[in-house]
Design a protein around this nucleic acid. Structure first.
Length: 320
DNA sequence: TACCAGGTAAAAA
DNA sequence: TTTTTACATGGT
């Protein structure tokens, strides 16, 4: 007992000394804290956002009061937990059982939950729209959630090509549980380095087609060897990012737009080739039937510069 | 049991 | 150049 007390104390001191090198305030930084506060730009409803996210997968969210995710910090799996600070609509608390990662973990949580998105201008736009006004009112505080990495997002796009979201989800789960890492009962998506050295046959074993296995394997290999870096997409304008993605084998127009809006959070981008988008936009903004890509474009014109976000709201509304 | 499900590259015409 | 075709799994 006395021993463990002593050990704890020395570890705290060492940590504090390290922290002081970086910041005069000492205690309040990365090495020491296991929790950090994340401030939001405008309205946000974490529970609603988690609930809606769950409705896009075959496994509905169990506990929408807390966001738990297995992510990676410098490649190492870490459990991320985010909850709304008690009675405070504009603050989230991000924490982890793992020490020494709270700084980068906070940055990642901000990315995944879209902390810097201010929904108010979007709501001002939708308020004047005949259909979106009611949808936005019903879903007030909803923000899309982004995957932890663009590599994972790319894999999501590939798996969801052509087959149902449910089938794609099962295939991804098998991929993750075979090549990823488990922490806190959750699975972190595999590193590109891991998938790069997996034989095609092993990728296919999870249910991927031969073609899709090649897409993912090729992508993983290019990322692992350093010849491709998706991080550059974050600095590119929408058009440039779209053509960059489409240069990669396995990524057509649908995948590029899907990654833009869902992976990068480009709020005006819409995958107009998407079956779900065509049926949902047709249902709410058309005569009820499925729309052609050009019709989707036209129907969403009044929602510039939030066509992608508006589409997300319609898809979410459809699943309530 | 079929058939469709939030596409894409490659072959055939 | 434009039009077919193969592909894989899960839900209905």
């Amino acid at each position: 007992m006395g021993n463990s007390h002593f050990i704890d104390f020395s570890s705290v001191r060492r940590t504090r000394a390290h922290g002081l090198l970086k910041d005069q305030s000492g205690w309040s930084h990365h090495e020491m804290l296991r929790a950090a506060t994340l401030s939001l730009q405008g309205p946000y409803d974490l529970s609603l956002s988690l609930d809606i996210a769950g409705r896009f997968s075959p496994e509905p969210a169990k506990d929408v009061s807390i966001f738990r995710s297995a992510v990676r910090i410098d490649g190492a799996p870490v459990l991320m937990e985010v909850r709304q600070v008690r009675r405070h609509p504009l603050l989230l608390e991000v924490s982890s059982p793992t020490s020494g990662v709270i700084g980068p973990l906070k940055t990642l949580a901000e990315w995944m939950l879209f902390a810097d998105l201010d929904l108010r201008p979007f709501y001002r736009l939708t308020a004047r729209h005949p259909k979106l006004a009611a949808v936005a009112r019903r879903l007030r505080g909803l923000k899309p959630k982004r995957p932890a990495s663009l590599f994972e997002m790319a894999a999501i796009a590939i798996t969801e090509q052509q087959i149902s979201l449910a089938a794609a989800y099962r295939i991804r789960s098998r991929l993750t549980e075979r090549f990823g890492d488990c922490i806190g009962g959750l699975w972190a998506f595999p590193l590109a380095e891991r998938l790069a050295r997996a034989p095609l046959e092993e990728l296919r074993a999870g249910g991927l087609s031969r073609r899709k296995s090649e897409y993912i394997s090729g992508l993983a290999k290019r990322i692992a060897e350093g010849s491709l870096d998706f991080a550059v997409l974050k600095q590119m304008p929408d058009d440039e990012a779209r053509s960059f993605i489409m240069k990669q084998r396995g990524f057509g127009r649908w995948s590029a737009d899907y990654i833009l809006v869902r992976g990068l959070g480009r709020l005006d981008c819409v995958p107009v080739d998407d079956l779900g988008v065509q049926t949902t936009v047709g249902k709410y903004l058309g005569d009820g039937g499925r729309m052609a890509p050009e019709e989707v474009q036209e129907a969403l014109e009044p929602l510039v510069p939030y066509r992608g976000l508006a589409t997300f709201y319609l898809l979410a509304y459809c699943r309530l």
